[in-house]
């Protein structure tokens, strides 16, 4: 028995139209998200598949993409990038990215200041 909807092309058409209209109702996203969440997924489910350099490459590309779309970089992305730079020992770039997170989102200040202070201490001790 074929489902009745298949026997009524008009119904299929209407469903598609309706779905498109409903999808159109969805609010425009505030941010361009790019690969951020899939990087998190990969880093946990396939450790080693997303090393710090790979993540940096993708996040930098996403930030450029957000700029070109005129979208604000989403919360957490600069901080995540900064952490990846720190893993790679790129202290200056890490600081720049931390500062970007803080200036876009002042709510992050306390956490970011702590991260930067600890990174600076490690750098002084020669551990970074």
């Amino acid at each position: 028995m074929t489902p009745s909807i298949v026997r009524h092309p008009k119904a299929v058409f209407l469903t598609i139209v309706l779905a498109t209209l409903l999808a159109g109702c969805e609010a425009t996203p505030l941010y361009h998200w790019g690969e951020y969440e899939s990087l998190i997924y990969n880093a946990y489910t396939q450790p080693g598949s997303a090393d710090a350099n790979t993540q940096i490459e993708k996040l930098v590309a996403d930030i450029q993409k957000a700029d070109s779309l005129g979208k604000k970089v989403a919360p957490g992305i600069f901080a995540h990038l900064a952490y990846m730079y720190a893993i790679e020992g790129e202290v200056a770039k890490s600081n720049d990215a931390f500062v970007s997170e803080k200036s876009l989102y002042p709510e992050s200040a306390k956490f970011i200041d702590g991260m930067m202070a600890r990174a600076a201490a490690l750098y002084q001790a020669g551990d970074l």
């Binding site: 609010a27 505030l30 998200w33 951020y36 969440e37 998190i40 946990y44």
Partner: peptide, 27 residues
């Protein structure tokens, strides 16, 4: 065992799109 971490990859976006600052989950 992976559920908590897969979940973490699915929560920043809806909360941030709702208008909140969301701390970087994996950091």
């Amino acid at each position: 065992v992976n559920a908590p971490y897969i979940f973490l990859s699915t929560i920043s976006r809806p909360l941030a799109e709702k208008g909140y600052y969301v701390f970087p989950v994996s950091v």
